[in-house]
Design a protein around this nucleic acid. Sequence first.
DNA 1: CTGTTAGCGCTTTCAT
DNA 2: ATGAAAGCGCTAACAG
Lengths: 339, 339
Amino acid sequence: MSKLTLKSVAKTLGVSTATISNAFNRPDQLSVALRQKILSACAELGYFGPNKAAQSLRTGSSGIVAVILSDSLEYMVSDPVASQFLQGVARELELHKLHLLLFSGSSANLDAISDFVDGFICYGAPRNLGLIAQLQRCPKRVLTVDFDLPGRPSVNIDNEQAAYQSAKAVLSRTDTVAILGLRLIDAPDSRPVLDAPLWDNQSSIAHRRLDGYLRAMQECKLSLQPDYLWHLPESNQLYAQQAAQAVLSLTPRPTVLLCMSDLIALSAMREALQLGIAIPQQLKVVGFDGIEETLRYHPTLSSVWQFSDAKGEAAVRAFLSLDDTPQLLPYEIRLGESS
Amino acid sequence: MSKLTLKSVAKTLGVSTATISNAFNRPDQLSVALRQKILSACAELGYFGPNKAAQSLRTGSSGIVAVILSDSLEYMVSDPVASQFLQGVARELELHKLHLLLFSGSSANLDAISDFVDGFICYGAPRNLGLIAQLQRCPKRVLTVDFDLPGRPSVNIDNEQAAYQSAKAVLSRTDTVAILGLRLIDAPDSRPVLDAPLWDNQSSIAHRRLDGYLRAMQECKLSLQPDYLWHLPESNQLYAQQAAQAVLSLTPRPTVLLCMSDLIALSAMREALQLGIAIPQQLKVVGFDGIEETLRYHPTLSSVWQFSDAKGEAAVRAFLSLDDTPQLLPYEIRLGESS
DNA sequence: CTGTTAGCGCTTTCAT
DNA sequence: ATGAAAGCGCTAACAG
């Protein structure tokens, strides 16, 4: 049995190539009966449709959208926020009969797949700087989420304002504040920021959030002591635990913990309770993101809900639309038992 | 500026298309000097190499290997075992200048990408049965890991023997055994298996492991009471906690816990210690997989080490090789403080 | 409703 | 070391 191509199939079925092509791609171009006959004949032969690579070469589009994760897959996808986002993306793509292709932000070569996809949705700034350069010059559509690339459409929330409001909702003038931040500096472990240079100050959501926290503190005439601002390299339990232990043993002990993710906040609460610190009487905790798990935990967490699944859907719609203006999505401050 | 193609670039540079093509693909076909000149001229023009889709259509290969995860990405990649495997795959592919494309096993359409890749490495049987059918008839190379597909090469360990040996290493004739199994039946929650029909008995690694445990128990004249065999839908803390709580409150209380993953075993140990049960004096625990985390935890876990990163590398090598015989990888029983 | 044909961007043989 | 030309598998415009 030789290779099955549109042409060879057309010949064996005794019709023209256009007819086969139409049977698969443009049902309106032939009678239902003929189409059915052709389709079932093809199935019988073992021909499952036109070659996608050729199709894509010919039409210039493949129906595949690449999602680039900022970091290694293992890190990203274990994060409930990221996986919710991905679910939203997948759902909306499916709605449009498009396919998702996952690409790790730590990979070197975007070129390798660039010609196979219709464009890119980048979730968070890729850790690998080389990718950014490739994205800049990419002739295909590129949409960024949670960060900006000059001249590219983006989807985000107003991190500064959200952080500001969430802090404002719990702070009073007598509080002592500690901040558990995410990727504020370039360090692989949990540590106080002190005077380490802040990382790419501009676009990072972490720094926007920090700005918001600081603005809220200023309005309450509160100042942030050096030891009270911590950097965590990732949003996971271990790093959060280390940081929480450290700040909770400072004197004076913080009365408010501003955390840049719910995962961090949850771990910090666990740590505090273990130390016998009462929440919210002795310590108020605020998170960021809004994940289901915080509703099952007690005390429930006060946080910024940013609805990551909806964000994923919005990202796809923005990717597909012609509108290139940056999109700011809504969020909600929801107060729980932790404040 | 019009579109940059091999042809257009060749014209502006005043050389033939073959020369440009050779400059990118076959350095030996032209002088170093000329090649350098062409490459830098291309970079200046903004031409970054031949279009991959066309290249793939022409040559019949794209340099991309798809890895299909058995389940949704979010579940798979949060598992340290899976992510170690993926790392091994990524490393070995890179070595061969190939690219990795991640595809979720819950996706519907393999056809969408099948023409863009050189083949598939499937890690665990896809949850979506439709994918299996597509994989069966796929004309490209397909390698399976941790399960079998008729006529396809595979990479695995001898799960039955490994489970048998790990159980054998801790069991004595006076023990009461409980088993915390992974995906034994088709249920979305933790629950005793009782007389629910076992799931696709054949190829599932869970059932191979169960067979091994049971063989070891038989040799010790031990029998397994219905309530003492639990099914967990996933290898995570919540499910493990529920199952552990349940079996540890049975009368008589188990003295040995056979767990089908290290993550399950770790959670079970946590639970037992919280209940004041001494390990290993009152309860011995055995895991499966071999993950780093068990070395940091105390008591350290006795387990089957299957070296998932090496498995990933082996999978790629098997994928690339002509040898289609099923490959059984080595494993090690390592005893820790938990037994 | 069907058949013919040009060409998507590239690689590769063959002749020069 | 280079140029011309065929063709990978398909789509879409056009003519019938």
